[in-house]
């Protein structure tokens, strides 16, 4: 039987001091759903993604993750999602292969060189496996960020402006990843780009 997953965001709000960034955001998602978060610059798209990822705290409200209808603990969140975001960085002094091997190990997975090489090949980084991340171009870095988000096959993919810095080949790779992932998991895309929003079944506009 195929695994099912769900995400429930209940009345989330965030404020910095007296400034309210957003409030009363609620969202329910199930396997196969793709939601786009849109809004003006500064409306809180990236902040909301960071809160869902556990990298920031909501001022109010709660977020629940379900796997096969079982509520997941905070501790399990790292196994539940993969994040790609402009401010996310990997280790400059490590190669792509070393970065991914490290992330596999800290996630409690067995270091699998074949799986790593396969993923790198898939995102078009074959031949660059042993080059240091620090010398990668911004487009190559974006491809590697996508790879790390897929490393543990998470049910939920959080993509903050996924096409940024990518050439047409890179965009085709993201296109394939999104189409493949939506067959079994959930995707949230934060963007104002029409090409990226086009994947979504629903749009959550934070500017409204």
């Amino acid at each position: 039987m195929a695994e099912t997953c769900a995400l429930k965001i209940k009345n989330i709000g965030k404020r910095f001091g007296r400034t309210i960034l957003f409030r009363d955001i609620s969202l329910e998602m199930n396997s196969g759903d793709v939601v786009a978060i849109t809004g003006w610059n500064g409306s809180g798209k990236s902040t909301l993604l960071r809160i869902i990822a556990g990298l920031g705290r909501a001022t109010i409200g709660k977020i629940e993750f379900y796997r096969n209808d079982v509520l997941q603990t905070e501790f399990d969140r790292r196994h539940f999602l993969g994040l790609v975001a402009p401010e996310l960085n990997l280790y400059d002094e490590l190669s792509a292969r070393e970065n991914l091997a490290f992330l596999m190990q800290v996630r409690g997975l067995q270091k699998d060189r074949q799986a790593i090489d396969h993923l790198l090949q898939h995102v078009g980084l074959a031949g660059w496996e042993d080059a240091l991340y620090g010398i990668y171009s911004s487009g190559m870095k974006q491809r590697l960020k996508l790879t790390q988000a897929l490393l543990h096959s998470p049910p939920l993919l959080l993509l903050d402006e996924p096409f940024s810095n990518l050439d047409t080949k890179g965009i085709a790779v993201v296109d394939e990843i999104i189409k493949k992932h939506r067959q079994r998991g959930m995707i949230i895309i934060a963007s104002n780009e029409q090409r990226e929003i086009a994947y979504a079944d629903r749009i959550l506009n934070l500017s409204e």
């Binding site: 556990g54 790292r78 994040l83």
Partner: peptide
């Protein structure tokens, strides 16, 4: 400083870190 703290928070268990 290298902004790698987020990837570590996303991937690793705090006790292990």
């Amino acid at each position: 400083e290298a902004r790698t703290i987020d990837i570590l928070k996303l991937s690793a268990n705090p006790i292990a870190v």
